[in-house]
Amino acid sequence: MGAFVSTLLGGLVQDPYIPLVFHPDTKGSQIILEESEYIATRAATFHDGIVFSNRPIHVNEKVTLEILKEDDRWFGGLRLGFTSEHPSLMDSRDLPPFACPNLVKQGKCWAGVLPDEYVGKGTIVRFWVNRKGCVFFRVDHESGSHLLLKDVPVKRPLWAVIDIYGRTKAVQLLDPSRPKICTYESNQLELNTAGQNESVCRNFCEGSSIGKECVVCFYRKANTVMLPCCHAYFCFCCSTRILYSSGCCPLCRQNVEKVLRVSAWAEKGIPAKWLEEVEDSQPPPRQKLNRAHAPETSPS
Rank of each mutant, 00 (worst) to 15 (best):
F4A: 13
V5C: 10
V5Y: 14
G11D: 13
I18K: 13
S29H: 09
I31Q: 04
I31T: 02
E35A: 07
E37N: 15
D48C: 07
I50E: 07
F52E: 12
N54F: 09
I67Y: 08
E70C: 03
F75R: 14
E85F: 05
L89Q: 06
D91Y: 10
S92H: 14
D94T: 06
L95C: 02
P96S: 08
F98W: 14
P101E: 05
L103A: 05
V113P: 02
Y118R: 00
Y118P: 00
G122W: 10
T123H: 10
F127G: 12
N130I: 02
K132M: 05
V135F: 04
H141R: 12
H146T: 12
L148A: 09
V152I: 14
V152W: 00
R156I: 15
P157K: 04
I164R: 04
G166T: 07
K169E: 00
A170E: 10
Q172F: 05
L173E: 07
L173P: 00
N187K: 14
E190W: 03
E190H: 05
E190S: 12
L191D: 07
N192Q: 11
S199L: 11
C201D: 08
R202F: 05
E206T: 05
G207Y: 15
S208N: 13
C214W: 04
C214H: 06
V215A: 00
V216C: 12
K221L: 14
V225Y: 06
M226W: 10
C229T: 07
C230R: 04
F234E: 03
C238I: 14
S239E: 06
S239D: 07
Y244I: 03
S246D: 00
P250R: 02
L251G: 02
N255A: 09
N255H: 13
V256L: 12
L260Q: 01
A264S: 15
A266C: 13
I270R: 07
V278K: 13
V278A: 15
Q282R: 15
P283V: 07
Q287Y: 06
L289K: 15
A292F: 10
H293G: 05
T297V: 15
